[in-house]
Amino acid sequence: MSSEVLTVSSKGQVVLPAKLRKNLSIKSGDHLAVYTAGDVIMLKKIEMPKEEDFKSHLDEAQAWAKSVGYRESDVNDAITAVRARKRS
């Protein structure tokens, strides 16, 4: 693990050092997720799945849902139930 000290600009921006960007293959336009816990800030690079990987995961999820007897209407019922709990 490595550490760096960064400075926050007047606009709230920080610059990731070039060595860090290179080591993590972070390029202009990449997206980072920001997590916080107390006074800790963590950044994680987000990589979009390739279309074939996404399709594979979707096919796997659909096969599982079918194997346990879920129907498309079950999804709508679950969404409605969660929304009702959030309102109360």
Rank of each mutant, 00 (worst) to 15 (best):
Q62A: 12
A18C: 00
K11I: 00
E47H: 08
R71H: 03
V5T: 04
D59G: 06
A33I: 09
A61H: 05
L20S: 04
V8P: 06
K55E: 14
D53S: 09
K44F: 11
A18W: 13
N23C: 01
K66M: 04
A33K: 14
W64C: 06
D77M: 04
V40A: 12
Q62N: 10
W64Q: 13
R71Q: 12
A81M: 04
Q62T: 11
R83I: 07
E60Y: 12
V14L: 03
K50C: 03
Y70K: 06
Q62E: 07
A33M: 15
S28P: 14
K19S: 14
V14N: 00
R83K: 08
I26S: 00
P49W: 02
D53L: 11
N23S: 12
A81W: 05
S9M: 05
D30Y: 04
K66N: 12
L20N: 03
Y35H: 11
G29P: 11
V34G: 07
D30T: 01
Q62Y: 07
K45I: 12
K66I: 05
V15S: 13
V75H: 07
L58W: 01
A63Q: 06
R87S: 15
S73I: 13
Q13D: 04
L16E: 03
S73W: 06
K22N: 14
D59H: 08
P17A: 07
R87H: 14
K27Q: 15
S2H: 01
H57T: 11
L43W: 01
R71F: 00
S25W: 11
A33D: 14
R85N: 12
H57V: 10
E51M: 06
S56E: 15
H31L: 10
T80H: 05
V14P: 00
L6E: 07
E60M: 10
V68E: 06
E52K: 11
D53R: 01
H57K: 11
M48S: 03
L24N: 10
V82P: 00
L32G: 09
V40D: 02
R21C: 13
N23I: 02
S56K: 15
E52W: 02
P17M: 03
L16H: 03
L20Y: 08
A61R: 03
I41W: 06
S88H: 15
E52Y: 05
R85Y: 10
N76C: 04
M48V: 15
L6A: 10
Y35N: 10
A78F: 04
V5F: 05
I26R: 00
R83P: 01
R87P: 07
A65W: 02
V15F: 08
E52D: 14
S25Y: 14
S9G: 09
Y70T: 02
V75F: 04
R83M: 08
G12H: 08
V14Y: 00
A78L: 08
E51V: 11
P17H: 07
L6V: 15
L58N: 09
I41S: 03
T80P: 01
A63K: 08
